[in-house]
């Protein structure tokens, strides 16, 4: 059923996007310099944007680039540069006791969950609109409308709750940062 939906351009787009995502993701982990890791992350985000376009979700693709590549990773870079942690960090020390063992358990659980999901659901194939049973998402203005309707009707509560959560996080961060600086100044003097 899914196999019939293949076309050469679809496969090409999927392969390119998948390679970008994988190369970027491996880069984030393997590269030692934090700025290079951030660059790899951008590559991954672009790969995901390409995958979105291949699924004719153009609006999501552009928003992905504007929000993640255009704002969030720039802020990562800002922090990396501002704090001057642009050299390698020692990874030998374990900040939390038993962190590595827990991480291992987390990896196993995540992979197991993914495999279980894939066994009962569709594999990632690059075929268009597997989840909407073959009907492609409406392009152009319809695309924006589909996303907008979903966000502001079906998922309104989740959307607003996320917004509130982000505001709380920002206010909390500002509060913590300010208090810390005062104590620093007093400690210095």
């Amino acid at each position: 059923m899914i196999g019939a939906a293949y076309a050469i351009p679809d496969i090409l787009a999927f392969v390119v996007a998948a390679l970008m995502i994988l190369a970027g993701a491996i880069g984030v982990l393997a590269v030692r310099n934090p700025v290079h890791a951030a660059l790899s992350l951008i590559l991954t985000l672009f790969g995901v944007a390409v995958a979105f376009v291949a699924q004719s979700a153009d609006f999501l693709a552009v928003v992905q680039i504007i929000v993640y590549a255009g704002a969030i990773v720039v802020l990562f870079l800002f922090v990396i540069m501002f704090l001057g942690v642009d050299r390698t960090d020692p990874v030998r020390v374990e900040p939390l006791v038993g962190q590595r063992a827990l991480a291992g358990v987390g990896v196993v659980v995540t992979i197991g969950g993914l495999v279980a999901l894939l066994a009962s659901s569709h594999w990632v194939t690059g075929a268009i609109a597997v989840s909407t049973s073959g009907h492609p998402t409406p392009g152009g203005a319809g695309n924006v409308r589909a996303v907008g309707t979903a966000v502001f009707t079906t998922y309104l509560f989740a959307f607003e709750a996320t917004a509130a959560l982000l505001i709380i996080a920002v206010v909390g961060a500002v509060l913590l940062a300010r208090r810390e600086r005062r104590m620093d100044r007093e400690g210095e003097a």
Partner: peptide, 11 residues
Amino acid sequence: LLMLAMSGISV
């Protein structure tokens, strides 16, 4: 939106 995305990249 493409223009916004590109101005994000030019940073």
